[in-house]
């Protein structure tokens, strides 16, 4: 029972990124807006650097109905509903506008309902985009052929692995924190990350070239417990979702804006942005990931709903 003067509801929101990444400030902005609009009735505490625990553990706690939340990705949600993994595939959506519309598509709506009713996950928003994933290497890469035999660090989920494999590289599963020394000691040849990850991890010290493939627009999911969410007053529910979408789109926009500045800074620090990249070849190669994982049909269906041409 809450003591006098304390928030009636508290959400403990966990993410794995460093507190200096733009996401952290974004989540805090969301927390502040919710607290103001609910007049202190609903408080969100943001935990950076996975202080509350491992992502998968938090997801289980969410399913058990705890007052915790997690910033996660479609690869992990894809464990529950395999089709969701497409959002993590190569060249699935390429603009923020596309991401915004995604939530309203019938197939996606169906997934969200299933996540809530069958698995206990309430997805507040997936308007949070970390930016475009590019390849960062020590050899210039212009086409999928140039990636051949290069060991590229990739998160361990199947959709990540197959996407990077489809684009020509050899995926290597390593934890985020192991990347720097692994690059330094040539355990791996490169990484695929968003621009904003590079300065924080100081990867420019151990990497030379950027190939702007933009192969994945990294859409994140903000997930809390459906059970806990349903117990909130309807007014609070509305505020929580609205503010999450709003803060998400705002943060995503400023991240994509900031990529230009980050890029300029990296060039100043000696990185080389590779020219004449054969994006069409990468786009074509990427198709294979969906086929291998047998989710090409799902992708085509959602693309059709979005009005994308094949």
């Amino acid at each position: 029972t809450p003591a006098f003067g304390q928030a009636k509801y508290t959400l403990k929101f966990n993410h794995v990124l460093s507190p200096r990444e733009p996401y952290h400030a974004g989540f805090q902005k969301w927390a502040k807006a919710v607290e103001e609009r609910t007049k202190g009735g609903l408080k969100i505490e943001v935990f950076a650097s996975a202080q509350l625990g491992v992502e998968e553990d938090i997801l289980e706690q969410i399913r058990a109905g705890a007052n915790v939340g997690q910033n996660t990705d479609s690869a992990r949600m894809g464990m529950y509903i395999p089709g969701i993994a497409i959002m993590n595939g190569p060249y699935f959506v390429e603009t923020l506008g596309g991401v915004e519309r995604l939530k309203k598509m019938p197939t996606v709506q169906g997934w969200l309902d299933e996540l809530a009713n069958k698995f206990g996950f309430k997805v507040l928003s997936f308007g949070w985009v970390q930016g475009y994933r590019h390849f960062f290497t020590n050899k210039p890469v212009r086409s999928p052929d140039d990636l051949k035999g290069q060991r590229i660090r990739t998160p361990p989920a199947p959709i990540w692995q197959e996407s990077v494999r489809a684009l020509g590289a050899t995926p290597v599963a390593l934890a985020f924190g192991e990347m720097y020394p692994a690059l330094q000691q040539k355990v791996i040849d490169g990484v695929e990350l968003v621009y904003n990850n590079i300065p924080g991890g100081r990867f420019y010290e151990v990497l030379k070239y950027v190939t702007e493939t933009g192969h994945i627009m990294l859409v994140n999911f903000e997930v809390i417990s459906a059970k806990w969410f349903n117990a909130l007053p309807p007014e609070y529910q509305k505020i929580l979702v609205e503010e999450c979408d709003k803060a998400g789109l705002e943060t995503s926009r400023s991240i994509i804006e900031s990529e230009k500045a980050v890029k300029a800074d990296l060039i100043k620090r000696g990185m080389v942005v590779v020219d004449k990249v054969d994006i069409a070849a990468f786009r074509k190669a990427g198709e294979k990931a969906y086929e291998v994982l047998k989710i090409a049909d799902v992708k085509d269906k959602v693309h059709k709903e979005l009005g994308f041409k094949k």
Partner: peptide, 15 residues
Amino acid sequence: KLSYTTRFRQFQGIP
């Protein structure tokens, strides 16, 4: 109880 609820959770690296 936990073993029952983790049945959907996959090892990321072992599909």
